[in-house]
Amino acid sequence: MIVAGRDRTVSSLGTVAIALLLIVAVLVPAAGAAAAAEENGRVETEELPAPDGAAEESAPRSSPASKPVVVLDPGHGGGDPGETGAAGTREEDVVLDIALRTAELLADGFEVILTRREDVALTHEQRANEANYRDADVFVSIHLGASSAVSANGVGVFVSSGTMTTPAGRTIASRTGQNGQTENRRLAEQVASSIHASTASTVRGIHTAPCRVLEGLTMPAVLVEAGFVTNPVEEELLAGESYRQTRAEGLAEGIRAFLASDR
């Protein structure tokens, strides 16, 4: 009887152990799968390309006859001053002033949006998302040049090197009838030509480069370096109001000419 009782006890323990193992075998992978799903979801959210996502939820124009939308993007800002010249001229201040002046010049015929109007920090994605959300017709990012060669000077215009086959490039193609790179080039040529005409300063040319801020934009876009803050002569000019005004006039004329030929 004692043996039989111990047998029952062992048998019960075995049953409990088996039951526990079964529960663990079922629950642990399920919990792991749930954790993995949660982790994957978090990664997908973080890595979701913001510009494309923003493009999908773009606000439609209020009416077909509304003014063309121009987004001006003064680079840097906030804790990121950009490059600073030997005399202390800061890129973030100069480009903001040029952008504000350009906006004023375009205010009569266009809806002009600035990605920043004060000294605040923005990510590249926030700048591009703003333009996509506003369904802009043109995006111009304004920066200054800086070089280890102090003689480097003039205005450089850059277009994205990857807009031929991206979703953003296809969106440009569908809205303009041209591929993204062609439209970017056309805008770059208009801006370079107008700046040169208005300031007679050196235009360094139009180059392609994988610029972060131009990625994912769904409208023709360029990045302009409006002068070299590392060149002592040009830094002094950029510190003055008249030089910034002529740069703004060149930019405004280039944008106006591009949109006029686009219509």
Binding site: G82, L144, G145
Partner: peptide
């Protein structure tokens, strides 16, 4: 390094 599009692109 200098941080401008021109200088960065020339390096790359």
């Amino acid at each position: 390094s200098r941080k401008s599009v021109s200088e960065e692109a020339l390096f790359v």
